[in-house]
Design a binder for these strands. Structure first.
Length: 566
RNA sequence: UGUCCCGUGGUGUAAUUGGCAACACGUCUGAUUCUGGAUCAGAAGAGUUCAGGUUCGAAACCUGACGGGACAACCA
C-alpha cells in the first residue's frame, strides 16, 4: 500500500512528550482503570522557583488534559528544615500560576501513623530491623558503587526485639543518631539505594504540623511512594536524579499493594537556566546572607521574584511549554524565557511615556503657561485598550541620550539644528543649549511648528527621529530599578560551584532616581505592568518604603542604541 | 572499576515509531520615518558523537567504543 496521505510538512502537529506517551499508553492499556491522578510534592523548605513551575505545569497539566486530578502534597518528613512560612508561599505561588488543587491539600505528615504501622508490618515480616550502629559505620558497610556492601550485625534481630526497640525510638527513649530502622533488601545490590536503606531516624526537633508527637520520622524513600499509594496517585512524576530510587520505590509499593493498582514513577529533566542558579539551598543562603533583598528580590529565579519583576504566569507557562520534557540534561537559554515574557507583555501592556534620565527641553515659541492634551494610543496592537490624554506644555523632559551636542554618524535624534517629532505632539527644532560649569548639557532650547501637531495639517511632515517625552510641569517623579541577572557567569546554573558568590553580578541592580513619568501613572498600582515607549517593560514595585513610585524593569535591555553610535 | 540514564544546528525540542532531518529561541541582512525590545521579508547554521552491523532504506533497531550525567545524606 502506498502512502497517499498529503505531505504537509508545515502542518504543525503538536508533539507530545515521552511522559505523555506513557500516560496515553497506560490509559489505552486500561491500567488503574484508566484513571489519571498526579501530585505536586514540594518540601516546604524554601520558596518555589521557576524550576518548580516546570514540574507544576506537568503535574497539573497532565491531570487537566486527561481528565484527572492533581494533589498538592507537602513532603514534610524532615522537621529541621521545614516551616509554615514556606507552606504558605508555595500555595500562593501555585495559585498565582493558575493551578488549583481544590480540597486535595495533603501532607506526608498526614501519613505518619500509617507509615509507622507499615514499618511495624515490615518488621513482622522480617523485612526491617533496628540498627544500633553509628552513621559512619553504616556508611562504611554500605560499600561503594563499585564494592558490594556487608550486612549489619543487627540485621537478624528477632521480630520482638525490633518491635520493642522501634517502639522505644518512637517514644523518644533513645538519642538522635543512636538507632535507625532499616529495610532489609539487598546489601550486595549494584544499586546503592537497595542496600538496606534507612527508613526511619530519630529527630527530636518539633515538626511544623505534628509538633512533638513524633520522635521518629520516615525518610523520603519510605514516605514518597507510600504517600502516592495512599492517595491513589497513578503517575508520580519527578526529576531525573530519582531514577535510581525507582527500584526502591517499587519495592515498597510491592510490599504495600493489595490489588492491581500501583503508582508509577516517571522521571524527566530538571530545568537549568543559563546565568541562573536554581539550588534552593543556595538561594536560601543568598537570602540569609543579605546578598539579595529577600526571596522575592526581582533578581531571584523564584516565582515571587519573577512576579515582582513583571513576569506573568502566562509567560512562564509558555516558556515551560517551549522547553519541553525529556531525559536530556539540558541547559536552557534565559533568552527564551525573556522572549516568552516580551511576547506576552507586548500584547497586554499599555505603552506609556517615562524618561529615565531627564533633560529639560524648553520650547521658546510655545506660549508660557499654556497646557494642552495630546491623544495617544495605549496599545497599537490592541485597539480595545483605548487611548489616553497626555498633557503637553512649554517645558518637557526628554532622555539625555536623545540629545547630542555633536551628532554621531546616523544619529537621527535631537542635536543643534536638527528636527525631531515629540511623539503624539509637535515637531521641534533644536536652536541652542546651555551647559553647566561641569560642561554637562543642562537645558536645550527649541522651537516648534504649530501645524505639525499630530493629526494636524502638516502632521505628515517627515523627520528622522521620534522621541518620547514628559511634560515638565505635570511629570510624576519615580524611581526605576534596572535589574540584570544576579549571576554573570555562565556556569551551568552555578550549581556545581560551591563559591557561587564569585559569580554574583555587581551590576545586577542599578537604581535610577529622579526619573519622570507621565501623570497617568500616578495612580498605578503594585504589579501593574507597562511598556515605556522605547525603553522596555516595567512593573510597579510594591516594596517602596516611601510613597514614591518605583518601577522594576522586567527584561534587561539589549543595547540597541549602541548600534547607532558606532 | 559497578549499576542506571542520556548524546540531533550555538541553545532547547521535533521527526507520523525504519522513508527527503522540521520548529522555536538566538545570530546576521533588509524593509518599515509618530520608532517599536513591535511588525514584515530574507539568510547563515546540523546530515543526527564515532565505528561496524541489519535493511531497498537507519537519527531511530543491534554490537562496540567515545563523551556527559546520576548513585556511596540518619536531605528531598
Amino acid at each position: 500500500m502506498s502512502d497517499d496521505r498529503p505531505r504537509e510538512k508545515d502542518e504543525l502537529k503538536p508533539s507530545i512528550s515521552f511522559i505523555e506517551q506513557f500516560i496515553a499508553e497506560d490509559i489505552k492499556d486500561g491500567k488503574n482503570s484508566g484513571r489519571i491522578h498526579t501530585r505536586f510534592p514540594p518540601e516546604p523548605n524554601g520558596y518555589l522557583h521557576i524550576g518548580h513551575a516546570k514540574a507544576i505545569c506537568l503535574d497539573f497539566g497532565m491531570a487537566q488534559k486527561y481528565g484527572g486530578q492533581c494533589n498538592l502534597r507537602f513532603d514534610d518528613t524532615n522537621p529541621v528544615k521545614e516551616d509554615v512560612e514556606y507552606v504558605d508561599s508555595i500555595k500562593e505561588d501555585i495559585r498565582w500560576l493558575g493551578f488549583d488543587w481544590d480540597d486535595r491539600e495533603y501532607y506526608a505528615s498526614d501519613y505518619f501513623g500509617k507509615l509507622f504501622d507499615f514499618a511495624n508490618e515490615l518488621i513482622k515480616r522480617s523485612l526491617a530491623y533496628v540498627d544500633d550502629q553509628s552513621a559512619e559505620l553504616i556508611a562504611t558497610q554500605k560499600g561503594s558503587p563499585n564494592q558490594p556492601g556487608t550486612e549489619s550485625p543487627y540485621r537478624n534481630r528477632s521480630v520482638k526485639e525490633n518491635l520493642d526497640l522501634f517502639s522505644g525510638m518512637k517514644k523518644g527513649d533513645f538519642d538522635e543518631g543512636s538507632r535507625v530502622l532499616r529495610a532489609k533488601v539487598d546489601m550486595t545490590s549494584p544499586n546503592m539505594h537497595m542496600r538496606d536503606p534507612i527508613i526511619y531516624r530519630i529527630i527530636k526537633s518539633p515538626h511544623h504540623r505534628t509538633g512533638d508527637a513524633w520522635k521518629v520520622y520516615p525518610m523520603y524513600d519510605f514516605a514518597h511512594g507510600q504517600s502516592d499509594y495512599f492517595e491513589g496517585i497513578t503517575h508520580s512524576l519527578c526529576t531525573l536524579e530519582f531514577e535510581v530510587h525507582r527500584p526502591l520505590y517499587d519495592w515498597f509499593v510491592d510490599q504495600l499493594k493489595t490489588s492491581d493498582y500501583r503508582p508509577r514513577q516517571i522521571e524527566f529533566n530538571r530545568l537549568n537556566l543559563t546565568y541562573t542558579m536554581m539550588s534552593k539551598r543556595k538561594l536560601l543562603e543568598l537570602v540569609r546572607e543579605g546578598l539579595v533583598r529577600g526571596w522575592d528580590d526581582p533578581r531571584m529565579p523564584t516565582l515571587c521574584g519573577l512576579r515582582r519583576r513583571g513576569y506573568t504566569p502566562e509567560s512562564i507557562k509558555r516558556f515551560v511549554d517551549l522547553i519541553g520534557y525529556t531525559k536530556v540534561e539540558a541547559i536552557n537559554d534565559v533568552s527564551l524565557l525573556e522572549h516568552a515574557v516580551r511576547e506576552d507583555l507586548n500584547m497586554r501592556t499599555a505603552r506609556v511615556f517615562g524618561v529615565l534620565k531627564p533633560l529639560k527641553v524648553i520650547i521658546k515659541n510655545y506660549p508660557e503657561g499654556q497646557t494642552e492634551n495630546v491623544e495617544l494610543i495605549n496599545n497599537p496592537e490592541d485597539e480595545s485598550m483605548g487611548k489616553r490624554m497626555v498633557p503637553f506644555c512649554r517645558e518637557v523632559y526628554i532622555e539625555q541620550d536623545d540629545f547630542m551636542e555633536v551628532p554621531a554618524h546616523k544619529y537621527f535624534r535631537l542635536a543643534p539644528g536638527m528636527e525631531v517629532r515629540l511623539k503624539g505632539a509637535y515637531i521641534i527644532k533644536c536652536e541652542s543649549f546651555k551647559k553647566n560649569e561641569a560642561g554637562l548639557i543642562e537645558e536645550v532650547y527649541c522651537t516648534y511648528e504649530q501645524e505639525t501637531r499630530s493629526g494636524g495639517n502638516a502632521s505628515d511632515k517627515k523627520v528622522k527621529g521620534t522621541l518620547h517625552w514628559v511634560s515638565a510641569q505635570h511629570a510624576v517623579n519615580a524611581e526605576v530599578r534596572l535589574y540584570d541577572r544576579l549571576f554573570s557567569h555562565e556556569d551551568p546554573a552555578g550549581q556545581k560551584e560551591d563559591d557561587y558568590r564569585k559569580f554574583l553580578n555587581p551590576d545586577s541592580l542599578k537604581v535610577l532616581t529622579g526619573c519622570k513619568v507621565e501623570p497617568s501613572l500616578a495612580k498605578a498600582k503594585p504589579l501593574d505592568k507597562f511598556q515605556f515607549q522605547r525603553l522596555g517593560y516595567f512593573c510597579v514595585d510594591y516594596d517602596s518604603t516611601s510613597s514614591k513610585l518605583v518601577f522594576n524593569r522586567t527584561v534587561s535591555l539589549k543595547d540597541t542604541w549602541a548600534k547607532v553610535n558606532k
